[in-house]
Structure formats: structure tokens, C-alpha cells
């Protein structure tokens, strides 16, 4: 009880400390110069209709690379920390089969969700979404199969290959930026195309596709290691 009171006290002081962040900061009424530059020049410079995407993929591309790395690390870490169950035969508890309806539904929906995921990351420069969201959607398609068919195994070789190769390709595109364009991760290695259409914004769709594949396979990796590990 004393501890709780102490915590409460600390948090009260913490709130007092944070108060100026709310009280002293007026809501913005205009973009700051940096954002203005992005909004004004972004569409012409990078050709991406979604300005958030242009910020994510190009202007702050290193962040995104880091983000991909973080997810990659998480996958590796989760796989590292969880011991994989040896062989599915020694599985101690039998998992309950999913219902037939769910299985059928899954079979019907999976390709559609897949396509939807691809749509999201391929249109990252035109509509909301992008590699991460698309990757999550793809991962959730596979998650759905994992839920419906818990005994089925994921082909790890293919998963690994997709993960590795898409990551490496992303890097290669980044490197190409150094030599073909103005800098690392510059998307202008490909022509900018017609603004607002699918094949535009230089390498952004390619990059986002690769990120999408990578994120998708990484998330599947996380889920898979969590599912298959010893419990």
C-alpha cells in the first residue's frame, strides 16, 4: 500500500513535470519550413503522391532501413530465444482441429487477403499504407492459415529465401542510389513516371514491395517461431 502511494506520488510529480508540454504548446496552424519543403517539392522531386511515403522511403529512408532492421532483429531474437520443438510427432498436446467452416473460409480468403496485401504495398505511393502495412496483411493471411491448419508446416526455406533476398535487394537498390542517383536510398534511380499512377515515383513501389515481402516474411517468422516452440 505504501508502495502504491509512493508510485502515485511519483506519477503525480511526473504529470506536473509534463504539464508544460500540454499547456505551453499551442496547436500548429501552419506547416513548419521542413514539412513545407516536403509538401511543396516532394511530389515533383520524388513523384510520390503519398507524402508520408516519400518521407518514409526516401527523405528518411535510413530510418526505414533501421525499422526493417529492427523487425529483422526481433525475428531473429524471437527465433533465438525460443527453442524449436523437435519434430511435430513428439507434440505433447494435441491441438483441437479448427472447424470445417473456418477451414473453407480460410481457403477462400487467403488468396484475396494476399492480393490485398500486395495492393497495399504496391500502392504505397498513391494510397495510405505501404510496405509495413502490406507486410502485416500478408502475414495475417498466413496467420489465418496457421489458425485454421495448425499442424501444417510453413516452408522455411522459401520463407528464409524471401526474407533474405528481399532484404538484400532493398540494400542493393539503396546502393544503386549512391551511384545512379544522388545518394543512398534515393528513389530516383528509376524514372519518376506519370504522377499519380502506379508506375511512378521511381523506385518507391519497388522498395515498398521489397519491404512488404520482407516484413511479411519476418512477421510470419515471428509467429511461426512462437507457435512451434516448446511450451
Amino acid at each position: 500500500m505504501v508502495k502504491r502511494f509512493l508510485i502515485l506520488l511519483v506519477l503525480v510529480f511526473f504529470v506536473i513535470m509534463l504539464l508544460p508540454l500540454v499547456s505551453d504548446i499551442q496547436p500548429q496552424t501552419e506547416l513548419n519550413p521542413l514539412a513545407k519543403k516536403y509538401v511543396k517539392d516532394g511530389p515533383d522531386e520524388l513523384g510520390s503522391a503519398n507524402l508520408v511515403t516519400s518521407v518514409i522511403v526516401t527523405y528518411r529512408g535510413l530510418d526505414t532501413l533501421g525499422e526493417v532492421a529492427v523487425l529483422f532483429i526481433a525475428t531473429a531474437g524471437v527465433g533465438f530465444m525460443l527453442r524449436r520443438r523437435k519434430g511435430s510427432k513428439t507434440n505433447p498436446q494435441k491441438k483441437r482441429e479448427s472447424s470445417e467452416i473456418l477451414q473453407t473460409g480460410t481457403a477462400l480468403l487467403t488468396p484475396l487477403i494476399f492480393l490485398f496485401g500486395i495492393y497495399i504495398f504496391l500502392h504505397g505511393h498513391l494510397t495510405p499504407g505501404g510496405g509495413f502495412q502490406g507486410g502485416v496483411v500478408i502475414a495475417s493471411a498466413i496467420l489465418l492459415s496457421m489458425l485454421s491448419f495448425p499442424q501444417s508446416e510453413i516452408n522455411h526455406k522459401i520463407l528464409n529465401a524471401i526474407e533474405s533476398l528481399s532484404g538484400v535487394l532493398y540494400l542493393v537498390i539503396g546502393i544503386l542510389g549512391i551511384y545512379l542517383a544522388a545518394g543512398f536510398l534515393d528513389n530516383r534511380i528509376l524514372p519518376l513516371g506519370d504522377f499519380g499512377r502506379l508506375f511512378s515515383a521511381g523506385a518507391i513501389p519497388v522498395i515498398y514491395s521489397l519491404i512488404g515481402l520482407k516484413v511479411g516474411s519476418e512477421l510470419v517468422g515471428i509467429l511461426d517461431s512462437m507457435q512451434r516452440s516448446d511450451s
Binding site: 503519398n50 508520408v52 511515403t53 497495399i120 495510405p128 499504407g129 505501404g130 509495413f132 502495412q133 502485416v136 496483411v137 502475414a139 495475417s140 512477421l219
Partner: peptide
Amino acid sequence: AAPDVAMTEAAIGSGL
């Protein structure tokens, strides 16, 4: 007015 974030939060924060 942040649909990208909304999508991400829905997909990752809530779902995954």
C-alpha cells in the same frame, strides 16, 4: 488525418 498511421496501428498495434 493520418491514414497511414491508422492503418499501421490497426494492423500491428491491434491485430498482430
